[in-house]
Design a protein around this nucleic acid. Sequence first.
RNA 1: GCCGGGGUGGCGGAAUUAGGCAGACGCAGCGGACUUAAAAUCCGCUGAGGGUAAACCUCGUGUGGGUUCGAUUCCCACCCCCGGCACCA
Length: 856
Amino acid sequence: MGLWRSGSALPWHGRGHGFKSRQLHHFNNWGEKEKAMKVYDFKHIENKWKKIWENKKVFEAEPSATKPKCYVLEMFPYPSGYLHVGHLKNYTLGDVVARYKRMQGFNVLHPMGFDSFGLPAENAAIEKGIHPKKWTYDSIDYIRNQMKSVGLSYDFRREFATSDPTYYKWTQWLFLYLYNRNLAYQKEALVNFCPRCRTVLANEQVIDGGCWRCYSKVTKKSFRQWFLRITDYAEELLNDLDELKNWPEHVKTMQRNWIGKSYGTLVKFPVEGGGDIEIFTTRLDTIFGATFLVLSPEHPLTMELPATPIIKEEISSFVEKTLMTPEIEREAAEIPKEGVFLGRYAINPFTQEKIPIYVANYVLFEYGTGAIMGVPAHDSRDFDFANKYSLNIREVVVPETPDEFKDELFDGYGVLKDSGSFSGLTSSEAQVKMSEFLKERGLGELQVRYKLRDWLLSRQRYWGAPIPMIYCDKCGVVSVKEDDLPIMLPEEVDFVPKGSLSPLATSPDFLNTSCPVCGGHAQRETDTMDTFMCSSWYYLRFASPFTNKEPFKKEDIDYFLPVDHYIGGVEHAILHLLYSRFIVKALNDGGLLNFREPFLRLFTQGMVLKDGSAMSTSRGNVVMPETISKKYGIDTGRMYILFAAPPEREFEWKEEGVMGIFRFLNRVWRLVSPYKDFSLQNITSVSQNKEDEKIKRLTHKTVKKVTEDIENNFRFNTAIAALMEMVNGLNKSLEKEGVVSPGVLREALESLVLLISPFTPHLAEELWEILKHQKLIVEEKWPSYDETWIKEEMVEIPVQIDGKIRSKLTLIAGTSEEKVKELALREERVNKFLEGRIIKGIVVVPDKIISIHTEI
RNA sequence: GCCGGGGUGGCGGAAUUAGGCAGACGCAGCGGACUUAAAAUCCGCUGAGGGUAAACCUCGUGUGGGUUCGAUUCCCACCCCCGGCACCA
């Protein structure tokens, strides 16, 4: 080993000219061409290693009896044209994790595909006058190439698109599975309808209450639509969120709010003259203050109860007017409250008082029972309404601590007053006692309600999976036989929506069929499925995409699922993630899966902005990966995306930042690549001097830091910062007069290359080869670190006097408290600040700090 | 209104896990080396104020208070920003 030092075979050890010599060496080895380029040949390197990876099939995964699995998945894209660097962030994050886990010894499943059915693809096709199928598959070809050129480590054998018949066959199967388990059903749903065009309209197509084409007044009309019974799982979908420890809190909160569980009471108010009205309330304790009832416009009793034909007339026009208001407007909170008195009265079961019944625009039909009790003293909406129509306002709850409440309306919990025998109870006590009172008399009971509604699945659009159902004149609604799947989406169809129900209804070949039960004439369902149905199970198919006999092989699923790392945008926090959870639970109930949550760990990444807003084609602020590849190489692009900000946060794309990473990668290249002629193998790492120890410490500390940063919530930005520090430190040591033992240097350089490999895989492979390794770096083991090298030998301990750092002691780590005290008090500077003061106390935190506090 | 997240240099961001040297790393900026020159590369400086450019001192993590020898970190109150939900009874 002395040979290295004395023989000056290593030019970078020359006195004081370390860097210069290295450069010379570098040029001698690389010749004129390299000198002119002055940057590493990323183009050559990146193409070379992509080919090698592909030829060696290194990213293909199969179930294994011995190896532990890790399923890394990024949310698959809609194939609409191309990917820009904003999209790339998602895939790069996943790729780093997949590559890291692979080096950690996991059998990594890392697949990718395309969510190709649905409106985005269809609209784009309509705009460009190309068939959705051609447009979609052209996009897929383009995007697949982009993904490959980014060096994403996918098992491309497993790729599929949800619009492939071999895939949607099983989406249709899934529908039938749900139908057979009574989780799919048809029901009437209120939609906008133009009576003259005889068609449903989207909210956007209703302008000032009229049809956008014929200006007729639009009404609400019921249509039969397919729904999935997700509400059956409301309670479990809510409770299991608590088990998802590795999901971001905000996503779980959003799902909780969406499910919207509330505890309340169902109360029957007898109607004077017969019958009763059921209302739902979460504030039974305020019922003595209920001075009116309100029905929603859609409530059946609204048209039944009016006292006189004249009132009925008035109610009718009110209801019509209200329902005509587009949903968007009606749901806006600021709409003024309006209502009409029905001329009828109900009896408050607690006070036996006669209270008026109203219909009003602020009561929702879909929630609770579609009817409420009006308690104006304790609800701001009821308060507004009561003021407008001069209704009684009676206060029945007061705050426990009176100063909490001044003049405003009190809607909190407190103590009851003027509430008969319940007066004096707290709100929560009263709710229990009052619900018992109701139950004894058969007038009500405790109830749990959810905001979650069943999933409306039907779409009157062309580019989707046809719903595999048949309408027989004799047998009614009949499901397609499983053997007849897939029900192919016909290609020769005018797919542009023309206001008729569904484009598929215009294709007689598709529409007309025979009944699977009686063989008689029948018609197919012409609606297609919501695209979210396609994406609700794709992660299962990825684990088992090769079978055509079943949606997936159970043994594949049992091995690879659930997904260990799921990475995607927060825009899917509710829809896709909730639907997927529901589907998995439904499949588990049928014994097809052995788990009830699909995604163990979820990571939601922040967007990439350009010029202050999200990258998008319409804004024209996109940066293409191709541009970055050409100018700096895709490794630079990948690392920039990871370094610019913590991955969960959004960041502004800046060319200067990209250049910073490019400079860094070139520094890495210049640091490592000169060692190509010196086989560093078989030289063990033995530290011989101070500089060696420094480098060993730096190496092991960096390995630890990078490993922990990746493990600990994907802190790639600080991991890369640590790598930069390592490179800076190595350069400094090599430049200095003195020596670095080859074994120590070898360990450092190899660790560095291994550590950067998940971020910049192409560059890492090249450097690994230069360092004379036969194996691909993707097949290498992740480096480990030795704690004994992490601990510093010498520590710098600040001396704090009255909260201010006044001096520093450099000591051997582990110096005793007493010794630290003694040494600190011997310091001249310390004594200067202690002059004329009395020491009140000294606190020593070993190896960290010494703090002295004084008084005069 | 409710729920969640956040507020640190010119900028992106470190340090917040168990309280212990605030500003790691990078960008931008300034100065220098090399070069005929430019680019590239390398070296140095870069929170604010004072001080001779050194030593050194003071202030400083949204605001105000508290706990502590010590607070960006913990507690209380408030302000502001971002995201989600929103007439859900």
